[in-house]
Design a protein around this nucleic acid. Sequence first.
DNA 1: TACATGATGCCCT
DNA 2: GGGCATCATGTAG
Length: 214
Amino acid sequence: MNQLRKALPREFYDRDPRRVSRNLLGKVLVRRQGRTFLTGRIVEVEAYLGAADAAAHAAAGRTARNAVLFGPPGHAYVYFIYGNHYCFNVSCLEDGVAGGVLFRALEPLAGIAEMARQREVTVNGARDLRKLTSGPGRLAEAFGITRERDNGKDLTSNTSDLWIADDDFHVRRVLLTPRIGIAKSADLPLRYVIAGNPFVSGRTGSVLRTKRTK
DNA sequence: TACATGATGCCCT
DNA sequence: GGGCATCATGTAG
């Protein structure tokens, strides 16, 4: 558990969003709520490349909403979508250059009862666990992530109540697929999932390319 | 000030 | 497998 108290450093996020995406797989998202810790393993993310990526919020330039994406790396970008849901991202690349990674699915590890309470669902058996954090809107709700509370938050600060840690989990195989729910640049393989993980959202999708790691 | 739209999830068939 | 709720944000007028 002590490993989980240490946030990934800012340098981790000061790279191409594609590389950050690949390396975020297998890491652990941690939320501290008083004495309670909510943790979940990152099993699915998407890279958004900024100005060169038509599907990215940052593509049309800086606005009040997307300003975090243009700021320093390692900060939370949270936005409201479809009138119902929040989506949680982390900014990448240096100050002034936009980029980010969207968190799409987690595997619940600790604080499962609290996640179920915040999602307002009941969990009976392993199959129901997918309802907690399998999907961007779901994981945000399970972790209590909102724009008001978390947008702009520094995820690398050791005084934050939201951060990402490394517990030395080894990711065996990564799948690359097109991103979900977008119209522009929809064919680019920028969605990263841990192969075979049951908590990946939706269906596996068409696999464009697979990568093996040591 | 008005309007179109979306990095979704849920419920129904 | 498909329809739809629901509203913040951005852009046009």
